[in-house]
Amino acid sequence: MSPKARPILNVAKLVKRFGGFHALDGLSFHVVPGEILGLVGPNGSGKTTAINVISGLYAPDGGEVTLDGQPIGGIASHRLVHRGINRTFQVPKPFMSLTVRENVQVALSHGRPAVAPPSVADLLDEYRLTELADRPASELNSAQQKMLDLTRALATRPRLLLLDELAAGLNPAELDWIAGRIKALAASGMAIIVVEHLMGFIEHITDRVIVLNAGKEIFEGKLAAAVQEPQVIEVFLGGEHAA
């Protein structure tokens, strides 16, 4: 990856308020194609809010989000999907009464137009859902629902993928496997933002991390360097992620 590559996503001085609470308070960062960027920070530091704003769930209250240099703040989610942004959810919300296959089919037929779209069978196969293809999503366990959520996102052919705690709850073997998948996606040119509490996982897959606290960036760089920073240590110490 060239450090001079043009960012696909640029976030500048982003503000999001809920009532009087500033969930995001002037957050700025960017991500380039092929890069895996980690967003870390204690609970309530604004990681998921950032993902929700970028994916169009919330309109920002200030600052700017641009995709390929075009402002996208406040644009409806499905339009952003068509322009190449997608995400997974911390708590996956598949279409419960539809089958696994239908879940993916919806995203495939309404996602970003592509010259050579992937097939449902290939996608299901890649994320180990083939056996479950004809079962309703409500019968899946939570790890399987996470994989379905990821498959749903990938079926729309995203260029920028936001993963909100995808790894939480997976066993070590599954973690290794999914880390490999994420790296392969990045190698194909996709920009990926990962929100995660598992520091080992973050260290293993990310090129760079942004440490958030109270809706602001307090560090940017390699995770190994972050844990040397007194400010970062202070934020995490006493928090539940100190270990």
Partner: peptide
């Protein structure tokens, strides 16, 4: 089933 997920499927 879920309007937010549907939007995220591009609907």
């Amino acid at each position: 089933e879920d309007s937010v997920s549907a939007a995220m499927a591009g609907v």
